[in-house]
Design a binder for these strands. Sequence first.
DNA 1: CTTTTTTGCACAATCGATGGTGCAATGACT
DNA 2: AGTCATTGCACCATCGATTGTGCAAAAAAG
Lengths: 352, 352
Amino acid sequence: MTDIGKKKATIYDLSMLSGASPSTVSAVLNGSWRKRRIKEATAQLIQNLANEHGYTANLQARGLRSSRSGLVGLLLPVHDNRYFSSMAQSFEAQVRSRGQCPLVVSACRDPEEERKVVETLISYSIDELFIAGATDPDGVHTVCEKAGLKHVNIDLPGMLAPSIISDNYEGARMLTQAIIERAQEDGPLSPDDLYLFGGRNDHASHERIRGFRDVKRASLGADPDVCIQPTGYSPAMTARAFEAFYEGHGKLPRAFFVNSSINLEGLMRFLALHPHETFADIIVGCYDYDPFGSFLPFPVFMIRQDSEAMITKGFAILDADRGPPITHLVRPTLVPPRTALTGPLDALKDIE
Amino acid sequence: MTDIGKKKATIYDLSMLSGASPSTVSAVLNGSWRKRRIKEATAQLIQNLANEHGYTANLQARGLRSSRSGLVGLLLPVHDNRYFSSMAQSFEAQVRSRGQCPLVVSACRDPEEERKVVETLISYSIDELFIAGATDPDGVHTVCEKAGLKHVNIDLPGMLAPSIISDNYEGARMLTQAIIERAQEDGPLSPDDLYLFGGRNDHASHERIRGFRDVKRASLGADPDVCIQPTGYSPAMTARAFEAFYEGHGKLPRAFFVNSSINLEGLMRFLALHPHETFADIIVGCYDYDPFGSFLPFPVFMIRQDSEAMITKGFAILDADRGPPITHLVRPTLVPPRTALTGPLDALKDIE
DNA sequence: CTTTTTTGCACAATCGATGGTGCAATGACT
DNA sequence: AGTCATTGCACCATCGATTGTGCAAAAAAG
């Protein structure tokens, strides 16, 4: 609290002030002083001085020496999407409750970028890494392996490290079932009336498409390939797919499954160009939850993936050390239309 | 590329291999070798070795020595909200394009937490800090000042450091004007028909409320206090305010201004408990942009704050060093209902 | 009063990179 | 050939913490 504007105090400063040696000061301040048989009185003295001077350890120095940094990384595809930002929020909370510092970075679904970003994180000697939604989890794995960095995959599985992912197949089945049932309330549904938009060549998309097709075939008796429209994870591409369908048919499909909220943004772009009365009767399923998406002017069933549980599980696996590269499934939940779930936001202090 | 699984190579390893001294290796690898008059051939040799062994600098060691870390911090209230997550996305891109590493953390609008988090960041010797939406910017300022850390405020201004904020007054005026005009299409609007929900005792809320009231008074001739319902930044509190109004009046106000997308989530919670036909004719303005919020089943005017411009401006100020604690205003834009804007997501690679 | 044990702490090496300084070897010039 | 400038690099202290080891003083045991 003194020394405003001055350099930060170090253990050497406190060593001078207290008359103790730097190593004693260090031991006192990092808690290992009992083990080192430091007198209680000495510890007290040093701790008081530390408080008085607002001492905080230089974590770079500590990290350098101990080759641990207290940093835990989370690699995301993108930030600005409710699924990932909510994951970031849970991640932060859990990392901090473990006394470490979260480091959330995104890599734009670019395999090259993913590796580069992880290299950077490794250069900061991060202790653990959560790899969420990586395009190339195994490429990232190699980089981590080389550096001896403990890591898990979240959301998209890899072959080489433990993975925790949504049960995409089950989730897709639930979602498809829900869409179908709801659509059938308005009259019989033909296989051509039910489409899927979005997704690409990744594990999650495959599983979701598989779930969709299985349920569709079972319920509607057929499942033409044309009803699967993989557009990648891009709003623009998705919008184009809707536009193309619309041009061909003069309407949208009666019901459809959208692979993620990012693709759902593509639907918004399409809708912006057309009067919404035209589409008042569509039924939509979206594999992701977004509180506003749930209240669009047509029924939107959503899937809420339990990112909090995934993170928790991830830590459990890392703590258990050396887990086998097994894939763990976390069950998502179906969210009916017009549902406002609570989330991490509710933990905010808000005393007016 | 060799040494799979082994420890990371250091300048000492390369020093051995190349026969050059550690300092020479260091100079070569950090680019200062011309200044140090190292022979081109030596540099080449070392660089080849470095590539071959996948050398990357230990940034903790570098940071310790140079007391710069290459880390730039962004302190957010929360992640999972489109405004802040989109800010995080722009921030990341800009930081990385400057060759530094972004460190995005949230502090839950808790002044105590804000200071603690910043202390932690300082312990990692971050080079610069963007303080976004801090409850107590000046408290954070003090902490930064003590550590000699360059910083700017974003979104909420402080008295002690340069601040870059939305022009909340102008934005609120635009938004209010838009709501009123739209509502008047359905018939004359009385002052009691136009409310404001959300906001608390911070600068942004004050300015927005001021803008709202000024326009309302000018357009509708009056501005009763009861029409301002500050609920803080919490979905739950906001939902309660809507519920209370509804219980008292049997309906929602014909038109209202919602202070942020977080408060708009409160409206969703309210809506979830009531049949939506009841509210088909409300007109809403929301001071924040959310792509799904824009397509709700009633007209929602939104304000898009230009977080990218704010970050850019922030860097400009930090680069200019020692800017005076002036507040810079960035103009937001009005987004009409049913509008899907492009965003950072569109920069994603998505080659299927 | 010695010998042994315990207590309490200081010393010094170390983590990996940086940058000021010094010095030998080479080349230029008179 | 002798002087001087330049080139090319090595040496070493340093950043702030951690930790294994050693050793004096105090306490306990004999």
